[in-house]
Design a binder for these strands. Structure first.
Lengths: 215, 215
DNA sequence: CTTACAATGGGGAGAACTACTGATATCCGG
DNA sequence: CCGGATATCAGTAGTTCTCCCCATTGTAAG
């Protein structure tokens, strides 16, 4: 009795590579591949796989949403997220959606094979980097509180972050907002603590990702 | 006489998948894998492959820079870019850097296999979407207006800029490149003078626009 | 062979940022 | 009314960056 697996990823070559690797495993059978969230949802309903390898970032219906819906509909199906990003929002949202595992594309295939067998026994499998994030987050927050930019940072902090990402110095930001430079520095500090970021470059990228400014 | 291939991609599972697929081809031999631009450069020098499958976005030394340097050093080596992005800046910069092909990760493996054989006969191979971009760009611009980073900044400066945009301090960059912090600061200064930019935030955005790093 | 640029390295000064310590006032929800 | 979050401001210390000055080496172009 082999493990029935579905693959969901928007990049065909990734799907083919995964299939080639999985087909080397004697106890794993690949039932099919999907290239977006909607397609994987349909296939899951029809083919009843044991495990779905799910890319997080997909067009149309993303991996997180697809996971949420599939888990609700087919509780027995185990979903392993496979992502390039170790961004904590992705990880946490995916796990909240009901994923049984979260692997980075950075990991070795044997780890993924292991993950498949682990989740089959109703356990959770995280790659080490991801486990790290989950633990850190668990320790740092008594209350999970949705964990996104727009309720993590206060309005004023977002305002300051935007000006930082526009290349302004603290002094200029102070003038612009009619507050003292020390206040700006306090906000800066708070932003970095909250986001666990330690450089302007990464703050800028964060601001771009959050739409506070554009590249 | 089989075709000797190297793989460069920062995601291990992508490398393994590609290797599994390539090893099914009787006339292709995978010599090795690298996870960043610097490593692939070294491996290319030592192993003299026929073809390098090169991811565009890699940490440390990115695919574009690595391509530029490898092509300059080993003119016989054919480089096929393999990227998730069909962003025209990536495509054009990669081709300018001397890549013999540009494939999207979205493509079928048989297309990649075909690309390998095409570039071996000293021709260029582009996946259809990419060809589209190239043609459009060719039609729309009589003169490509070379006023971008890739002839304004020197290779070393681009390298330093990438690391700055990744949030590294000058000290860390110095360690990473095995040069003194003062040299890094000189490069930093040169970059800012050339680009008329005065903050890390704007440098970061510039690097993102030029495809040196991603948000 | 000169000229120009790239890459390397250094000194010094001041600005800017990072990282802590405080404090006070407001407002909002339980 | 109290606790928590937000927003304001200050001090101090250390780090990092910015911006000048300068030099040497190698290499490519003219």
């Amino acid at each position: 009795m082999s493990i029935k697996v579905l693959i969901a990823d928007d990049h065909q070559i990734m799907r083919e590579g995964l299939r080639a690797l999985l087909e080397k495993e004697p106890d794993i059978k690949v039932l099919g591949e999907a290239e977006d969230g909607r397609m994987i949802q349909r296939m899951a309903r029809e083919l009843r796989p044991d495990v779905i390898i799910m890319d997080v970032a997909m067009p149309d219906l993303n991996g997180i949403e697809a996971t949420r819906q599939i888990v609700a509909e087919l509780p027995g199906v185990k979903i392993i997220a496979l992502s390039m990003h170790d961004d904590r929002r992705f990880v946490l949202n995916m796990l909240k959606a009901g994923a049984a595992g979260y692997m980075l594309k950075d990991c070795a295939f044997k780890d993924l094979a292991k993950a498949i067998r682990v989740v089959m026994s109703h356990k959770t499998f995280l790659s080490p980097e991801v486990a790290d994030i989950v633990v850190k987050d668990y320790l740092s927050t008594t209350q999970p509180t949705e964990a996104s930019a727009f309720n993590l940072l206060s309005p004023r902090e977002r305002e300051v972050l935007q000006l930082i990402a526009e290349g302004k110095t603290s002094a200029l930001i102070g003038e612009s907002l009619h507050i003292s430079i020390k206040t700006v520095e306090t906000h800066r500090q708070q932003i970095m603590v909250k986001l666990k970021i330690r450089s302007v470059a990464e703050l800028t990228k964060y601001a771009i990702r959050e739409g506070l400014t554009s590249a």
